[in-house]
Design a protein around this nucleic acid. Structure first.
Length: 794
DNA sequence: AGCACGCCGACT
DNA sequence: GTCGGCGTGCTC
């Protein structure tokens, strides 16, 4: 038989694949299947990618054995994973891991077993601990490490302890328990707890278990271990219990506008892959459109995947979908417990839940007979994964998954991303619009407050008189108000207090960051630097202020300003856990509180009918971020937060405080005029060759040593630049320059940006370079991160 | 990422 | 003398 060589992906910083030989007796594996291979000095779990021809000069090891009788990644998902790995410069093993069943995501580790001959090998020191053929107990491990000169590692080296790899699989727990091999876990669990409760196969609720004599702590411990999983109806109860807002959508019939969008989308749904952009003003009922489309899909026996930007938004979406479809809808995300997640995942795979709602990680949900994908709030930057690789964009990867499945995808937003809207106007996407709110609800009135003239002097100068008055009046009317403040102001800008002028880079048109130590203004995109102002270059005023700091104070000032306020605070500090946010929102929904203060979290998806006033304390902070998307984000955020006001009968009001009332973004947001914002912003992007007219790749260098990070960045850029020239891939390098957050967790950081129209060719060039040099020939102390289509520039 | 190898400073 | 610090290099 001909030698069978295969490509295996192994998790870690090495993106390259490794070649192994298959034994003749091995069946041909399925792409994505996990395999145990010898790697370096030990065995590791990798992923089978496909057959290969190997370079001859290399010694090739033999694969040990394959996990899972069948693969748990469908052909389509496998293809999607490979695309993500290629496009986003990630390790295929890391991408495939995200598509695995939740219970299999943890890094596989071997059990340690005393070798059957270990009683002969063992030294007198450990002889008492040796139990040939049995697993190494936790107690024995401790005793060896504390009381002897041996380490676990060197007992393995001597062959006294042997690694034993257990085949883990993704079958439901009840099946595993039913099989004889795992009965032991039940027995030992119950005997250790001195309980005589018998195991059972069917599902029971908490209450039923308690009625049968189970103590709450026993139930909790059994759940922790996966011996008990949540019964489906219980998962449902928990999910709907945590939902606030208006539920019960079943009877709502679509408006003519909404119906037209559904019809247009569904008319194309049978013709394979197509991308649709739904631009609907806030409160226009995009969710109802999603539900109606889903209804048709489910009626045809198809599944629907609905992505939301954040975990917090899945609950509201679930409430809507449960209103229509009851138990056919489920959520899946990382804030669920392992067993909840596993139950959901298995239900999805078995077809019990044709409707799946989740954040970007849910993109890999094994939905049966997928009919379409819906990406809600498609403009939202949270769709881009920043930190652990794979750094993929949930929306773009969703479009790719739809393409692979040959199904339509619907992107929805009140303020579409420039990328998507340009694709729509260019005819690549089909554009749908919802221009009004259903029923009597109307868009709120928006007033821009000029902080140069209307701010309150003294201690409270973050507030203006109109805002203070409006909040007081609203609370007096027994209505509710939201105060929105953007607290993430790490980048400090130098601004003129008289005219609102901000220093911007003459090359990049993004805000310069002020560095206190050097008193200089610096561009974190191209590295340009200039002397700090002494007076304002526009109006010569000496009243310069540092913006971007000091916002924390605002929270403390509120009770003094508004004595009748019952304040609830919603931000990532106050709403850490998954239920906390709902509890806080619940206090507003129930009327217990009447003034909600918060950061980004209040801008998204809240549906609080009694809120009739929204005050934006500073529109400038996000506008002045050192990021070419600052204007787009500001516009989207203002539209979103304004959309929280007046969602029911009473007309809402929005006040926006700013030092730049004549900035085009602010004017467009105040007029709620996306089109005019788009025309202006797209022209500026084109002039500066920013996305969507190019693609951006961000390469970050991190090093504890500042000198070395500078030299590494420089050397990398020089080498890259000559490679780009040689290969004739069109690409422009910008930088390296210090990151806006130039020192984080003991590391100095520098950014290098690449603008290119050919991402795939460029990443191919990077891959080749990486493979022939190992770590691009840079010092190993310098960490290098490649982020394709970055959202985070800090 | 791990993990081993290897070459220099504080200890029994 | 050696134990152990972490710089460097490798993994089919």
């Amino acid at each position: 038989m001909k030698e069978r060589l295969v490509d295996i992906a192994i998790s870690g910083p090495l993106r390259r694949t490794f070649t192994y030989r298959l034994r003749d007796s091995m069946e041909t594996p399925l792409p994505g299947q996990r395999v145990l291979v010898p790697f370096g000095r030990k065995n590791t779990v990798g992923f089978y990618l496909g057959p290969t021809t190997a370079p001859k000069e290399m010694e090739i090891k033999e694969a040990i054995r394959f996990f899972d009788e069948s693969t748990y990644v469908s052909k389509e998902l496998f293809q999607l994973c490979r695309w993500i790995a290629d496009y986003y410069f990630a390790n295929p093993a890391d991408v495939l891991t995200s598509a695995l069943a939740p219970s299999l995501k943890k890094q596989e580790r071997p059990h340690l077993v005393w070798s059957t001959s270990s009683h002969e090998l063992a030294s007198p020191e450990i002889a008492a601990l040796v139990k040939p053929g049995k697993r190494l107990s936790a107690a024995a491990r401790k005793s060896i490490e504390r009381n002897t000169r041996f380490t676990i590692r060197n007992l393995i080296g001597k062959g006294i302890l042997v690694e034993e790899w257990q085949l883990s699989d993704a079958r439901p727990r009840t099946e595993q328990i039913a099989s004889a091999g795992n009965l032991g876990s039940w027995q030992s669990f119950f005997s250790r707890r001195k309980t005589n409760l018998a195991p059972f196969d069917g599902s029971r609720t908490n209450d039923e278990l308690k009625a049968a004599g189970w103590k709450p702590d026993v139930i909790a411990a059994a759940r922790e271990r996966g011996i008990l999983t949540f019964a489906d109806r219980e998962v449902n109860q928990r999910a709907s219990k945590s939902v606030t807002g208006r539920v019960g959508a079943v009877d709502i019939s679509p408006t003519d506008e909404q119906q037209a969008v559904c019809d247009a989308f569904l008319a194309e749904a049978d013709r394979g892959f197509s991308t649709h952009l739904l631009h609907g003003v806030t409160g226009s009922g995009k969710t109802l459109v999603y539900c109606r489309i889903t209804q048709t899909m489910v009626a045809q026996g198809k599944g629907v995947l609905i992505l939301t930007p954040e975990i917090a938004l899945t609950a509201t979406a679930l409430a809507w979908f449960r209103g229509f479809f009851g138990d056919a809808a489920t959520v899946i995300h990382s804030a669920m417990t392992d067993s909840e997640r596993m139950d959901s995942w298995l239900g999805i795979r078995s077809g019990k839940y044709p409707i799946v709602i989740g954040p970007r990680s849910a993109l890999f949900a094994p939905v049966c007979n997928l009919g379409c994908i819906i990406v809600d709030e498609e403009h939202d930057g949270s769709y881009k994964q920043n930190d652990p690789s794979p750094r993929f964009h949930g929306r773009d990867a969703a479009i790719m998954r739809s393409k692979i499945h040959g199904i339509p995808v619907l992107l929805g937003s009140a303020s579409p991303s420039l990328e998507s809207y340009r694709n729509a106007t260019a005819g690549r996407y089909r554009l749908h619009k919802l221009t009004k709110r259903p029923g009597n609800a109307v868009l709120p009135t928006i007033r821009v407050v000029d902080m140069r003239t209307e701010r309150v002097e003294g201690e409270m100068k973050q507030f203006s008189l109109p805002v203070i008055q409006a909040v007081r009046e609203t609370l007096d009317r027994k209505e509710q108000a939201i105060v929105f403040l953007n607290r993430r102001g790490y980048a400090i800008q130098l601004a003129c207090e008289e005219c609102g002028e901000i220093a911007t880079c003459r090359n990049c048109k993004i805000a310069l960051t002020f560095h206190k130590s050097s008193k200089r203004l610096q561009c974190h995109y191209c590295g340009h630097s200039e002397r700090g102002w002494i007076d304002c270059p526009k109006c010569q005023s000496h009243r310069l202020i540092l913006s971007g700091s000091g916002t924390q104070k605002i929270e403390e000032q509120l009770p003094a300003l508004f004595p009748s306020a019952r304040v609830a605070r919603l931000d990532s500090d106050s709403a850490g856990g998954r239920d906390k946010a709902h509890a806080i929102i619940g206090r507003i929904a129930s009327g217990e509180c009447n003034l909600l203060v918060g950061t980004q979290m209040v801008t998204k998806g809240l549906d609080l009918p009694a809120v009739t006033l929204v005050a934006v304390l500073s529109a400038d902070q996000s506008l002045n971020m050192p990021d070419f998307r600052a204007a787009e984000r500001t516009f989207a955020r203002l539209v979103q937060v304004a959309g929280r006001s007046g969602r029911a009968e009473r007309r809402g009001e929005v006040l926006i405080q700013t030092y730049n009332p004549s900035a085009a973004v602010i004017e467009a947001a105040a007029a709620q005029d996306f089109e005019s914002f788009y025309r202006m912003e797209i022209a500026s992007r084109e002039a500066l060759h920013y996305p969507p007219f190019s693609r951006l790749i961000r390469i970050v260098f991190e090093d504890p040593d500042e000198k070395r990070v500078v030299s590494s960045g420089r050397a990398f850029a020089d080498s890259l630049s000559s490679r780009v020239e040689k290969s004739r891939v069109p690409a422009t390098l910008i930088g390296p320059a210090p990151c806006p957050m130039s020192f984080v967790r003991g590391r100095h950081r520098r950014n290098l940006f690449v603008k290119t129209s050919r991402i795939v060719e460029f990443t191919k060039l990077l891959t080749e370079w990486e493979n022939q040099t190992s770590r691009f020939g840079m010092p190993s102390a310098t960490k290098i991160v490649v982020d394709v289509d970055p959202d985070d520039m800090m």
